[in-house]
Design a protein around this nucleic acid. Sequence first.
DNA 1: CAAGGAGTAAACAGATCGGTCTACTTTCGG
DNA 2: CCGAAAGTAGACCGATCTGTTTACTCCTTG
Lengths: 214, 214
Amino acid sequence: MSEYVKQAPEASKAPETGGAGPRRVPLTPGARRALEAAGRLFYERGIHAVGVDLIAAEAGVTKKTLYDRFGSKDQIVVEYLADRDERWRAFLADRLERVRAPRSRILAVFDASRDWAERSLPRGCSMINAHAEITDPAHPAYAVITGQKAWMLALFTDLARALAPRRAKSLGRSLMLLHEGGLVAYGMGIFPDAIDHARRDAQALLKAAVRSDG
Amino acid sequence: MSEYVKQAPEASKAPETGGAGPRRVPLTPGARRALEAAGRLFYERGIHAVGVDLIAAEAGVTKKTLYDRFGSKDQIVVEYLADRDERWRAFLADRLERVRAPRSRILAVFDASRDWAERSLPRGCSMINAHAEITDPAHPAYAVITGQKAWMLALFTDLARALAPRRAKSLGRSLMLLHEGGLVAYGMGIFPDAIDHARRDAQALLKAAVRSDG
DNA sequence: CAAGGAGTAAACAGATCGGTCTACTTTCGG
DNA sequence: CCGAAAGTAGACCGATCTGTTTACTCCTTG
């Protein structure tokens, strides 16, 4: 892998859709198939374990197309993570739109995570997994990973503010801990229904928080 | 990497020290240095990102010695994880020996994790990280990873039993969630002092659990 | 109709991967 | 004193890795 210099030739335009972050490459049909294949393979087997030749073969695309569109494997990794993040945020936003009560909105995040997790292999959170493989903070994908977690923490904190404003910061962090714990326990198969268990614990936590907040 | 067939030539003896698991190779001076180097490199950079040539060079050992002792890179990975697990259990046992009150013993696990984490790079739990890279359940290291998490869950459940016997199973899982969440949040730098925060949440949880258990 | 964007097919390059091998040296216990 | 264990030094193997290149084919659009 090159030293993070390469971007796709036509990159560095496109409007900001969600959070900040490097790049998005225009998705031609071939690029779209490549990204879909890369996403599946990266998630199932790990990033380092999947080569560009395999991605190209699975996508029914030549390596030239891969490099014409993305410029480097590192950029494919960035697109993979940014794409998953974007999808997750859209999925979650849709779930949250339908719920009004502050307490239910918080629990809806856990429900969304459970449903999201159950629609693919039980391999847990792609950001946590990617963080285990990408150890260099200068890697362009690193910001996507930490940005996703920072966004989730901010979300929990915001949701907590509507429920217990004085304890929002601490409560947000506690919810984050339960949520991350649920994702990991689910991904590693430590015990069954881990995300549901985390949800129940969150529910108890919220009850106590409301009681003790002004 | 070979298909998991290779073990060190002299393997498959040595008494069971801790939990079950595939095997420990006798540690000659060269093998010890190699394992120390491999452990540091694997943890800091990830398993797939570290080659056997680098391990040999950092350990001041030739590749022949590596393969005479371990037989394969896969076996080095197994030794790396089993060694860390063994060390962690010894470290934790020492901490637990000094505490008697059931509630304090549970909190001592969080304290031990915090201290253990702070003595190395903030890269979180080596088992969680390894699980992100080793995706094949047939890999000999997989049992070490899942075995470690199962052991931790059993530990939390046992400790919980002394405090709230009727809720031990559920309480053990809740503690596990907080603990794993703390490890991940710490490893990814999501917010400061994550393990301490998890400890505080565990403390509150224990208070409530005692109140509602027989 | 001409030009350019998107793509296929496939060879190629250089580096690195895990792993093997030969030849020689050092150390130590029976 | 001798043989086995543990090690160094370093060449070597085939496979795979990321990335590049040449030559050609579609298809769309001005």
